[in-house]
């Protein structure tokens, strides 16, 4: 017993002697690493606490917003007419609520409208004050979109969403999906691009702009279970008055081998001009069926007609 208590008593002294005999480099490395682990543990715990609350809310939340991004030179009002048409068809009291977020030049966010859970698929428009037609702007806006998405999730606790991008809005979504999207936080079901010039104004598919080359190079980051619909507007199958159809079609080099489903089609007729694509009746029909009603697999849907069209195109 005496021997045992002596061993216990001498143990701390032995530890100190052992520590002093250890090489200096080892002592420094051990202490620094231990400190770093403690800091990481504290920060990690704080993050987990906030995230856990958010996770729980997300799990319980059933909303699956449709998030719209307008193109260059367009404001957050770009989709007003489309929303009016779609909401006119919904039952009374179950209209899609509309929330608009503008990213200002100084990075601040301005919210307008509201988001209610009356309809499971509220509409959110994310617009950018900086909206010139060039690649650096697309990159900067994609980064801001990452910030907006995190902010929206913290406020409204959703995980699933669908995306619609008009013109350069489609480029912003693509850049976002490749660089800022994390499948741990979100699940994007469908991306629909309207007249999106994946190769900017380049008409030849053999000449790739820097942006298109980057998109193709980073395409492996795009979620593989995504359905992508790329829609071009045209009267004469060359352009929609602004964007060349060939540039829209180059989207296939980014998505076709990566995503679960990639469909491209051309709409024509009334309102097929570039700026009016969101009001085109065929486009409205496609949004209704493919995004809102999710009828992509039904035999008589426009989506199936699209499939037939793309199969015919391939032939």
């Amino acid at each position: 017993m005496h021997k045992f208590s002596k061993t216990i008593f001498l143990f701390p002294k032995k530890v100190v002697t052992f520590w002093k005999q250890t090489a200096r480099s080892s002592r420094i490395a051990f202490t620094l690493t231990l400190t770093a682990i403690v800091i990481l543990a504290i920060l990690g715990r704080i993050w987990m606490l906030s995230e856990h609350q958010n996770d729980k809310a997300i799990q319980k939340s059933h909303i699956q917003p449709v998030i719209f991004v307008p193109g260059s030179s367009a404001t957050i009002q770009r989709f007003n007419s489309l929303f009016t048409t779609l909401n006119a068809e919904t039952k009374k009291g179950a209209a899609h609520s509309i929330l608009k977020v503008q990213v200002n030049n100084d990075g601040t966010l301005s919210y307008s409208g509201h988001l209610s859970t009356a309809n499971r698929q509220p509409f959110i428009v994310v617009g950018f004050e900086r909206n010139q037609d060039n690649y650096p702007t697309v990159q900067a806006d994609a980064q801001s979109l990452g910030t907006v998405m995190a902010d929206l999730q913290a406020k409204y606790h959703f995980r699933n969403f669908s995306a619609v991008g008009h013109s350069n809005g489609g480029l912003i979504w693509t850049d976002y999906l490749e660089n800022y999207y994390s499948s741990n936080s979100f699940h994007i079901k469908t991306l629909m691009t309207l007249g999106t010039p994946f190769n900017f104004s380049e008409t030849s598919t053999t000449k790739k702009t820097t942006m298109l080359s980057d998109f193709i190079a980073n395409s492996s980051a795009i979620p593989t279970d995504l359905s992508v619909y790329s829609i071009a507007g045209s009267d004469d199958y060359t352009d929609d008055g602004l964007v060349n159809v060939q540039s829209v079609l180059t989207g296939k080099y980014i998505f076709q081998k990566q995503v679960a489903k990639y469909t491209q089609t051309t709409v024509s007729g009334e309102n097929a001009q570039h700026s009016k694509l969101p009001e085109n009746p065929e486009v409205i029909n496609l949004i209704r069926e493919l995004i809102l009603d999710n009828k992509a697999n039904e035999p008589n849907s426009s989506a199936n007609k699209l499939k037939k069209e793309s199969a015919d195109d391939k032939r």
Partner: peptide, 17 residues
Amino acid sequence: PSAIVPAIFRIHFRMPI
């Protein structure tokens, strides 16, 4: 983007080309 450093510090590094 799903790693611990960007998550904890809430930063997103833009992936270089």
